[in-house]
Amino acid sequence: MHNGRLLTIVGGIFALVGLVLLCVCAALAASTAGFLASAGRTDGTVVELTARTSTTRGSDGHLRSSTSWYPTVELTVDGRRYSFQSSTGSNPPSYSEGERVPVAYDPDDPSDARIASFGSAFLAPLIVGGLGVLFTPLGTILFVKGRRIARQRAWLWANGQEVWAEIEHVGRDFSVRVNNRHPYVVHATWRDERTGRTHTATGDHLGHDPALRLRGRTHVRVLYDAADPDRNLIDLDTHPSQR
Protein backbone atom coordinates (compact mmCIF):
# COMPACT_ATOMS: atom_id res chain seq x y z
CA MET A 1 0.00 0.00 0.00
CA HIS A 2 1.45 3.34 -1.02
CA ASN A 3 1.59 6.36 1.25
CA GLY A 4 -1.56 8.47 0.84
CA ARG A 5 0.13 11.70 1.92
CA LEU A 6 1.30 12.61 -1.58
CA LEU A 7 -2.16 12.00 -3.05
CA THR A 8 -3.73 14.10 -0.30
CA ILE A 9 -1.34 17.02 -0.88
CA VAL A 10 -1.58 16.88 -4.68
CA GLY A 11 -5.36 16.48 -4.54
CA GLY A 12 -5.72 19.41 -2.17
CA ILE A 13 -3.57 21.61 -4.41
CA PHE A 14 -5.48 20.59 -7.55
CA ALA A 15 -8.86 21.18 -5.90
CA LEU A 16 -7.78 24.58 -4.55
CA VAL A 17 -6.37 25.64 -7.92
CA GLY A 18 -9.58 24.44 -9.58
CA LEU A 19 -11.75 26.53 -7.23
CA VAL A 20 -9.56 29.58 -7.81
CA LEU A 21 -9.83 29.10 -11.58
CA LEU A 22 -13.62 28.82 -11.34
CA CYS A 23 -13.72 32.08 -9.36
CA VAL A 24 -11.48 33.77 -11.93
CA CYS A 25 -13.74 32.41 -14.71
CA ALA A 26 -16.82 33.87 -13.03
CA ALA A 27 -15.09 37.24 -12.56
CA LEU A 28 -13.89 37.35 -16.19
CA ALA A 29 -17.31 36.35 -17.52
CA ALA A 30 -19.09 38.97 -15.37
CA SER A 31 -16.62 41.66 -16.43
CA THR A 32 -17.01 40.77 -20.11
CA ALA A 33 -20.80 40.61 -19.89
CA GLY A 34 -20.89 43.97 -18.10
CA PHE A 35 -18.69 45.56 -20.74
CA LEU A 36 -20.77 44.19 -23.62
CA ALA A 37 -24.02 45.33 -21.98
CA SER A 38 -22.96 48.99 -21.91
CA ALA A 39 -20.73 49.03 -25.00
CA GLY A 40 -21.33 50.74 -28.30
CA ARG A 41 -21.41 48.57 -31.40
CA THR A 42 -19.90 48.93 -34.83
CA ASP A 43 -18.00 46.94 -37.44
CA GLY A 44 -14.22 46.94 -37.66
CA THR A 45 -11.64 45.64 -40.10
CA VAL A 46 -8.76 43.28 -39.36
CA VAL A 47 -5.70 45.18 -40.56
CA GLU A 48 -2.90 42.98 -39.24
CA LEU A 49 -2.17 39.56 -37.74
CA THR A 50 0.67 39.44 -35.20
CA ALA A 51 2.41 36.17 -34.38
CA ARG A 52 3.42 35.44 -30.79
CA THR A 53 5.50 32.38 -29.99
CA SER A 54 5.58 30.82 -26.54
CA THR A 55 7.80 28.02 -25.25
CA THR A 56 6.83 25.42 -22.67
CA ARG A 57 8.61 22.42 -21.18
CA GLY A 58 6.79 19.11 -21.56
CA SER A 59 6.59 16.31 -18.98
CA ASP A 60 9.45 14.59 -20.83
CA GLY A 61 11.68 17.62 -20.22
CA HIS A 62 11.79 18.76 -23.86
CA LEU A 63 11.03 22.34 -24.86
CA ARG A 64 8.09 22.87 -27.20
CA SER A 65 7.10 26.08 -28.94
CA SER A 66 3.71 27.16 -30.22
CA THR A 67 2.62 30.21 -32.20
CA SER A 68 -0.68 32.08 -31.94
CA TRP A 69 -1.95 34.84 -34.21
CA TYR A 70 -3.49 37.99 -32.71
CA PRO A 71 -5.62 40.26 -34.93
CA THR A 72 -5.31 44.04 -34.89
CA VAL A 73 -8.67 45.64 -35.65
CA GLU A 74 -9.38 49.16 -36.90
CA LEU A 75 -12.71 50.89 -36.25
CA THR A 76 -14.20 54.32 -36.85
CA VAL A 77 -16.35 56.14 -34.28
CA ASP A 78 -17.74 59.66 -34.89
CA GLY A 79 -15.33 60.13 -37.78
CA ARG A 80 -12.25 59.24 -35.72
CA ARG A 81 -10.21 56.12 -36.38
CA TYR A 82 -9.10 53.80 -33.58
CA SER A 83 -7.32 50.47 -33.48
CA PHE A 84 -6.73 47.73 -30.92
CA GLN A 85 -5.08 44.33 -30.77
CA SER A 86 -7.26 41.50 -29.56
CA SER A 87 -6.13 39.80 -26.35
CA THR A 88 -7.22 36.47 -27.84
CA GLY A 89 -4.99 34.65 -30.29
CA SER A 90 -5.34 31.31 -32.07
CA ASN A 91 -3.56 28.87 -34.33
CA PRO A 92 -4.63 28.69 -37.09
CA PRO A 93 -5.72 32.36 -37.19
CA SER A 94 -9.44 32.90 -36.52
CA TYR A 95 -9.50 35.90 -38.88
CA SER A 96 -7.81 37.07 -42.04
CA GLU A 97 -6.53 40.51 -42.99
CA GLY A 98 -9.29 42.67 -44.51
CA GLU A 99 -12.07 40.69 -42.78
CA ARG A 100 -14.95 42.66 -41.27
CA VAL A 101 -15.72 41.81 -37.62
CA PRO A 102 -18.27 43.04 -35.05
CA VAL A 103 -16.72 45.32 -32.44
CA ALA A 104 -17.88 46.45 -29.00
CA TYR A 105 -16.30 49.62 -27.59
CA ASP A 106 -16.48 51.89 -24.57
CA PRO A 107 -18.51 54.97 -25.64
CA ASP A 108 -16.33 57.17 -23.40
CA ASP A 109 -13.08 55.71 -24.75
CA PRO A 110 -13.48 53.99 -28.15
CA SER A 111 -9.87 52.82 -28.01
CA ASP A 112 -11.05 50.40 -25.32
CA ALA A 113 -12.63 47.88 -27.66
CA ARG A 114 -12.80 44.18 -28.35
CA ILE A 115 -14.15 41.82 -30.99
CA ALA A 116 -17.79 41.23 -30.08
CA SER A 117 -18.14 37.63 -31.30
CA PHE A 118 -18.90 35.11 -28.55
CA GLY A 119 -15.75 33.10 -29.20
CA SER A 120 -13.41 36.08 -28.96
CA ALA A 121 -15.20 37.80 -26.08
CA PHE A 122 -15.62 34.75 -23.86
CA LEU A 123 -12.68 32.57 -24.92
CA ALA A 124 -10.58 33.46 -21.86
CA PRO A 125 -13.38 32.71 -19.35
CA LEU A 126 -14.15 29.46 -21.19
CA ILE A 127 -10.53 28.31 -21.07
CA VAL A 128 -10.08 29.26 -17.42
CA GLY A 129 -13.44 27.73 -16.50
CA GLY A 130 -12.67 24.54 -18.41
CA LEU A 131 -9.43 24.13 -16.46
CA GLY A 132 -11.33 24.79 -13.24
CA VAL A 133 -13.94 22.16 -14.12
CA LEU A 134 -11.10 19.70 -14.80
CA PHE A 135 -8.94 20.46 -11.76
CA THR A 136 -11.66 20.67 -9.10
CA PRO A 137 -13.19 17.16 -9.38
CA LEU A 138 -9.81 15.59 -10.16
CA GLY A 139 -8.28 17.20 -7.08
CA THR A 140 -11.26 16.20 -4.95
CA ILE A 141 -10.99 12.56 -6.07
CA LEU A 142 -7.24 12.46 -5.36
CA PHE A 143 -7.72 14.15 -1.98
CA VAL A 144 -10.46 11.72 -0.90
CA LYS A 145 -8.42 8.74 -2.11
CA GLY A 146 -5.33 9.98 -0.28
CA ARG A 147 -7.27 10.46 2.96
CA ARG A 148 -8.75 6.96 2.65
CA ILE A 149 -5.31 5.43 2.14
CA ALA A 150 -3.95 7.41 5.11
CA ARG A 151 -6.76 6.08 7.33
CA GLN A 152 -6.13 2.52 6.14
CA ARG A 153 -2.41 2.88 6.90
CA ALA A 154 -3.12 4.26 10.36
CA TRP A 155 -5.41 1.29 11.03
CA LEU A 156 -2.76 -1.17 9.85
CA TRP A 157 -0.08 0.40 12.06
CA ALA A 158 -2.40 0.08 15.05
CA ASN A 159 -4.19 -3.21 14.33
CA GLY A 160 -2.41 -5.03 11.50
CA GLN A 161 -1.15 -8.59 11.77
CA GLU A 162 2.63 -8.90 11.61
CA VAL A 163 4.50 -11.20 9.28
CA TRP A 164 8.09 -11.29 8.04
CA ALA A 165 7.85 -11.48 4.26
CA GLU A 166 10.61 -12.51 1.90
CA ILE A 167 12.01 -9.69 -0.25
CA GLU A 168 11.08 -10.61 -3.79
CA HIS A 169 12.25 -7.57 -5.76
CA VAL A 170 13.84 -4.15 -5.23
CA GLY A 171 13.90 -1.78 -8.18
CA ARG A 172 12.27 1.05 -10.02
CA ASP A 173 8.54 1.25 -10.69
CA PHE A 174 8.48 2.12 -14.39
CA SER A 175 4.69 2.46 -14.42
CA VAL A 176 4.76 5.86 -12.69
CA ARG A 177 6.86 9.02 -12.47
CA VAL A 178 7.48 11.18 -9.42
CA ASN A 179 9.35 14.46 -10.05
CA ASN A 180 9.97 13.19 -13.57
CA ARG A 181 11.77 10.10 -12.26
CA HIS A 182 10.73 6.48 -11.80
CA PRO A 183 10.65 5.82 -8.02
CA TYR A 184 12.07 2.77 -6.29
CA VAL A 185 9.78 0.19 -4.74
CA VAL A 186 10.13 -2.97 -2.66
CA HIS A 187 8.05 -6.11 -3.24
CA ALA A 188 7.83 -8.86 -0.65
CA THR A 189 5.83 -12.10 -0.48
CA TRP A 190 4.64 -14.39 2.28
CA ARG A 191 2.50 -17.51 2.56
CA ASP A 192 -0.61 -17.43 4.71
CA GLU A 193 -0.45 -20.62 6.76
CA ARG A 194 -4.21 -20.59 7.34
CA THR A 195 -5.24 -20.50 3.69
CA GLY A 196 -2.10 -21.66 1.91
CA ARG A 197 -2.26 -18.58 -0.34
CA THR A 198 0.76 -16.45 -1.21
CA HIS A 199 0.36 -12.69 -0.89
CA THR A 200 2.49 -9.82 -2.19
CA ALA A 201 3.12 -6.53 -0.39
CA THR A 202 4.24 -3.46 -2.33
CA GLY A 203 6.12 -0.75 -0.46
CA ASP A 204 5.93 3.03 -0.72
CA HIS A 205 7.46 4.84 -3.65
CA LEU A 206 10.98 5.88 -2.67
CA GLY A 207 13.18 8.58 -4.15
CA HIS A 208 16.42 6.71 -3.37
CA ASP A 209 17.50 3.13 -3.90
CA PRO A 210 16.68 1.24 -0.66
CA ALA A 211 19.28 -1.44 -1.40
CA LEU A 212 21.71 0.01 1.16
CA ARG A 213 19.03 0.02 3.88
CA LEU A 214 18.22 -3.59 3.07
CA ARG A 215 21.81 -4.83 2.73
CA GLY A 216 22.10 -8.33 4.10
CA ARG A 217 18.37 -8.61 4.77
CA THR A 218 16.19 -11.22 3.11
CA HIS A 219 12.94 -10.37 4.90
CA VAL A 220 10.97 -7.24 5.79
CA ARG A 221 8.19 -6.68 8.30
CA VAL A 222 4.70 -6.50 6.80
CA LEU A 223 1.52 -5.44 8.56
CA TYR A 224 -1.69 -6.70 6.98
CA ASP A 225 -5.43 -6.90 7.51
CA ALA A 226 -6.26 -10.48 8.51
CA ALA A 227 -9.67 -10.16 6.82
CA ASP A 228 -8.06 -8.91 3.60
CA PRO A 229 -4.30 -9.65 3.40
CA ASP A 230 -4.02 -7.64 0.18
CA ARG A 231 -4.45 -4.56 2.37
CA ASN A 232 -0.96 -4.32 3.76
CA LEU A 233 2.11 -2.13 4.17
CA ILE A 234 5.84 -2.75 4.33
CA ASP A 235 7.85 -1.50 7.32
CA LEU A 236 11.43 -0.96 6.15
CA ASP A 237 12.60 0.58 9.43
CA THR A 238 12.17 -2.46 11.67
CA HIS A 239 15.13 -4.85 11.48
CA PRO A 240 14.69 -8.63 11.90
CA SER A 241 16.95 -8.44 14.95
CA GLN A 242 14.23 -6.38 16.68
CA ARG A 243 11.74 -9.24 16.58
Rank of each mutant, 00 (worst) to 15 (best):
M1V: 14
R5M: 10
R5K: 15
T8V: 10
I9K: 00
V10I: 15
L19K: 11
L21S: 12
L22P: 04
V24E: 01
L28Q: 14
A37T: 14
A37M: 08
S38K: 15
D43T: 15
G44E: 03
T45E: 03
E48P: 01
L49Y: 11
L49V: 12
T55N: 04
H62E: 10
H62N: 04
L63F: 14
S65M: 00
S66M: 02
S68W: 11
Y70K: 10
P71W: 03
E74P: 06
T76A: 05
D78G: 04
R80C: 04
Y82V: 07
F84D: 01
F84T: 06
Q85R: 15
S86K: 09
S86T: 12
G89S: 03
G89R: 11
E99W: 11
Y105C: 02
Y105R: 09
Y105L: 03
R114H: 10
I115R: 03
A116L: 06
A116S: 14
S117F: 11
G119M: 01
G119R: 13
F122R: 02
F122T: 08
P125V: 11
I127T: 03
V128Y: 07
G129R: 08
G130N: 07
G132E: 10
L134Y: 11
L134D: 03
T140M: 01
T140W: 04
F143R: 08
K145Q: 02
R148P: 02
R148Q: 11
R148K: 12
I149Q: 01
R153S: 09
A154G: 03
L156F: 08
G160D: 07
E166F: 06
E166M: 05
I167G: 02
V176S: 03
H182G: 00
P183Q: 09
V185Y: 04
W190T: 09
R191L: 09
D192V: 13
R197P: 02
G203T: 12
A211K: 15
R217M: 10
T218Y: 06
T218S: 10
R221T: 04
V222K: 01
Y224T: 14
Y224V: 12
A226D: 08
A227Y: 14
P229F: 13
N232E: 07
L233E: 05
L233T: 13
I234C: 00
D235Y: 10
L236V: 10
L236Y: 10
T238H: 05
Q242D: 11
